[in-house]
């Protein structure tokens, strides 16, 4: 059976995945892919002021 897209991506990353692990790996990867799709739908270009990114920690660090 040919490798799925997810298996190809894992192997391109240099990871050795045993056959018995493929199902769980594909489940985990699909879960992340779905989360990323939802994330992209909830953020739009231009919906925040330009260049305000900062690590979103609730506290200020000591200077």
């Amino acid at each position: 059976m040919p490798d799925t897209d997810i298996v190809q991506r894992l192997r391109q990353a240099g990871l050795r995945i045993a056959d018995e692990e493929l199902t769980r790996m594909e489940d985990l990867a699909r879960s992340h892919d779905a989360a990323a799709l939802r994330l992209r739908a909830s953020l739009k270009f231009g919906d925040e002021p330009s260049n305000v990114f900062r690590l979103p920690m609730p506290q200020e660090r000591r200077s």
Partner: peptide, 26 residues
């Protein structure tokens, strides 16, 4: 091994955008 390896497949842009949205939730 399985849970951490799945992190190899997440795009850099999705990681950064997750941090952007995190700031909004904070």
């Amino acid at each position: 091994r399985q849970r951490i390896s799945a992190g190899a497949l997440i795009k850099g842009s999705d990681y950064v955008n997750a941090l952007r949205l995190r700031a909004k939730l904070v």
